[in-house]
Amino acid sequence: MTSQVIIQAIISGILMGLIYALIAAGLSLIFGLMEIVNFAHGDHLMLSMFSTFWFWMLFGIDPIFSIPLTIILMAFLGVFTHYFIIRKILNSTMLIQICATFGLAVTIRALAQFFFTPDFRTIKNPIIQGKFEVYGVFIGYPQLFASFVCLFAFILLYLFVTKTETGTALQATSQDRQAAEILGIPSNKMFALGWAIGLSCVAVAGSMLSNYYYVFPDVGVNFSLFAFVAVALGGFGSINGSLIAGVIIGIVESVGGLLIDPSYKLLYVFAVYLLVVILRPQGIFGRY
């Protein structure tokens, strides 16, 4: 095995990992705010991909231009989800919270199958396509572009949370809801904002993925599994943690597939999760 092959695997892993990271960041943000795991996160990703697909299919808008439209759609969906469902189960048991977001996942996926059929779809001839070679390592333009956009979105998210007033309020609510309320930060609004941002993250990731990935109703499943792993590794609620964890997962997936057997890719990632949480239940970067 040449070093080129390994470098190729690592680079592909990092490119994919940045996408996992952004998906996980959305999940982690929501969890950090209200201790709810959005089990429909993968299906929200699927919706973003379909949104991008339909903008292209119906109006001929290329994925790179439909990003803002998809973000707006998904952000609204996030606010609605919070308003009509999440808000009402905030004080329920963990089981009910799990069940409600699973119910949402089942509904979204079934609706997608009903309206979009289970067919696999692709966006043909997007603006960004093709690949280039450096020292025998091939890099696809859509993949490279997708991970740049995800990284850029990640940086924006980070700056928003740490540098803006609203972002600081969001963090305050995440750390101590009661204390934040006393300071006059309405937690309900913050939660809605959290859902809007969380789903905006998948909107960006989904738009970029649909440039080169099949779009179909079950597409979100594996992505959401990886997002759970990334969030657990990074520590529930830690946005920075999910960046590093997402990249680690991307590398484990592609290098593991290269060195051992590509058909067990899922298992390598799961094995990392199990090892980490059993040995260190608070995640690699988690505080508690």
Binding site: I85, K88, I89, S92, I96, Q97, C99, A100, F102, G103, L104, A105, V106, T107, I108, A110
Partner: peptide, 10 residues
Amino acid sequence: YGILIILICI
């Protein structure tokens, strides 16, 4: 199913 479950949870 999905809608029923969400309603039950709420």
